[in-house]
């Protein structure tokens, strides 16, 4: 798994294609929202949470596809399948890579979003990285699975969002609720945090179990 992760990180350091394009896209989405909502207005926590997660989902989808597109050139995906590596391990390596890159993008994009939307500071915001992490894990688990499924199809750019977005709805509802509560100054957000955790566990385990069937020709 570490060999695969090392290779993905090395490729990203060499090309800088993934993180830079994700970051630019995330920033553009936030700016569009700021302009649409009125740049002078101070936004409420619900709006702030929604913008944060919409940005993450749309920029993240670009990153998910890129994770497998780098394997398509020169047939590298076949090379991976030939290696004596269990497909479940391949899934975990791609998942960890996606989480890593998205966390990196969000470590810049999230503070920028909060500042541009003029959201008030509160101590509960210190727990925001944890919520972002939980959301990103669930998003990446489901997304890695579907990106692997769609990458070998001609209509992958359309298929990935069409298949992924409906299944992300429970995760997004929970993530927006938890984030919105945090932006409003509350720390304990009860049931929605457990929904986020459950989503993560279910889709990491499901992905690991069914990935061999997904990548099999």
């Amino acid at each position: 798994m570490w060999a695969l992760l090392w290779k993905d990180v090395l490729l990203e350091i060499r090309t800088k294609e993934r993180v830079s394009s994700l970051f630019v896209l995330a920033l553009l989405i936030v700016l569009i929202f700021v302009v649409a909502l009125g740049p002078e207005q101070v936004q409420g926590p619900e709006i702030g949470a929604a913008v944060l997660w919409i940005t993450l989902v749309f920029s993240g989808m670009l990153g998910l596809q890129r994770a497998f597109l780098i394997e398509q050139e020169r047939g590298c995906f076949s090379g991976l399948l030939l290696c004596p590596i269990e497909p479940g391990t391949l899934f975990l390596a791609k998942l960890v890579g996606n989480i890593l890159f998205l966390m990196l993008v969000e470590s810049v994009a999230a503070p920028v979003t909060l500042v541009l939307l003029k959201l008030p500071w509160s101590w509960s915001l210190l727990a925001l990285p944890l919520v972002l992490f939980l959301g990103i894990v669930g998003f990446s688990a489901l997304g890695t699975l579907f990106a692997a499924l769609t990458v070998r199809t001609r209509a992958r750019e359309i298929l990935l969002p069409v298949m992924l977005l409906p299944l992300l709805i429970p995760l997004l509802i929970a993530a927006v609720h938890v984030t919105s509560a945090m932006l409003a100054g509350m720390v304990w957000t009860g049931v929605w945090l457990r929904v986020l955790l459950a989503f993560d566990v279910i889709f990491v385990v499901t992905g690991w179990l069914i990935f061999p069937q997904v990548v099999q020709e």
Partner: peptide, 14 residues
């Protein structure tokens, strides 16, 4: 197994 196919299975940016 060792397989050499029509594609090189090599990462062009490495």
């Amino acid at each position: 197994l060792g397989f050499l196919g029509h594609e090189s299975f090599l990462y062009p940016d490495l």
